[in-house]
Amino acid sequence: MQELETNWEFVADAVMGGISRGRIANQVVDGRSATRLTGMVSLENNGGFIQMASDLKRDGSGLDASNWVGIEIDVCGNDEIYDLRIRTDDLDRPWQSFRAPFHASAHWTTVRLPFPDFEPHKTDNVLDPAKLRRIGIVAVGRVFQADVAVSDARLF
């Protein structure tokens, strides 16, 4: 396995006029240091998401993960479904991504998402693991209270 360096930042649907609100914080969650995304997802004003996202390399360039099977994250949440999203160097629009849903149980769980499980969104491109650039944990698509923490992310 290879640990991924993450520097999470908060992103919300306000960039599109939405009114979802939330935040990220570095906290100890159930005994582990983690980055925690909390907030309320709203569908009003064409909104519908809050997210914590991280470039995979500090300079924003691509990361070659072609020798790996997928991404593994250690998560703890509120028993809701979230998305893990990947952006690659092949995507040039902010709404394009590759997406895989996961369940964030109330106890720390390791979630493994193989690259073939990621579905393209608003792109005809195929996910190329040799060009990974950014990952995101996203609360999206329905009105709900988001609460999800990530302690580690790695390639497996």
Rank of each mutant, 00 (worst) to 15 (best):
D59M: 10
D83G: 07
T110C: 00
R112T: 13
G70P: 03
T110Y: 04
K122I: 04
V126A: 15
G77K: 09
C76Y: 04
A65L: 10
G77C: 08
P116K: 09
F102G: 06
F118A: 04
Q51G: 01
H103N: 03
G60S: 08
V111P: 01
D83M: 12
R85T: 01
C76S: 11
D92C: 00
V75A: 15
S105P: 06
C76N: 14
G62Y: 07
L84Q: 00
P116N: 08
D124A: 13
G77H: 07
P114D: 11
R58S: 13
R85S: 00
P101V: 11
L91D: 05
V111E: 15
I73M: 07
R58I: 11
S66M: 10
A104Q: 06
P116L: 02
I50A: 06
D79L: 02
D83V: 01
R87S: 10
W68R: 15
E80M: 13
E72I: 02
S54M: 01
W108H: 10
T109Y: 04
S66F: 05
A106G: 09
N78G: 12
S61P: 06
Q51I: 10
A53Y: 04
R87E: 11
N78Y: 11
A65N: 11
T88L: 06
L56Q: 00
Q96S: 04
L91F: 00
E80C: 10
Y82V: 05
F115H: 12
K57G: 11
D83K: 11
K122V: 03
I71H: 01
D128L: 04
L84W: 01
R85M: 01
T123E: 00
W68C: 09
R99L: 12
M52C: 10
M52L: 13
L91N: 01
L127S: 04
I86H: 04
D124M: 10
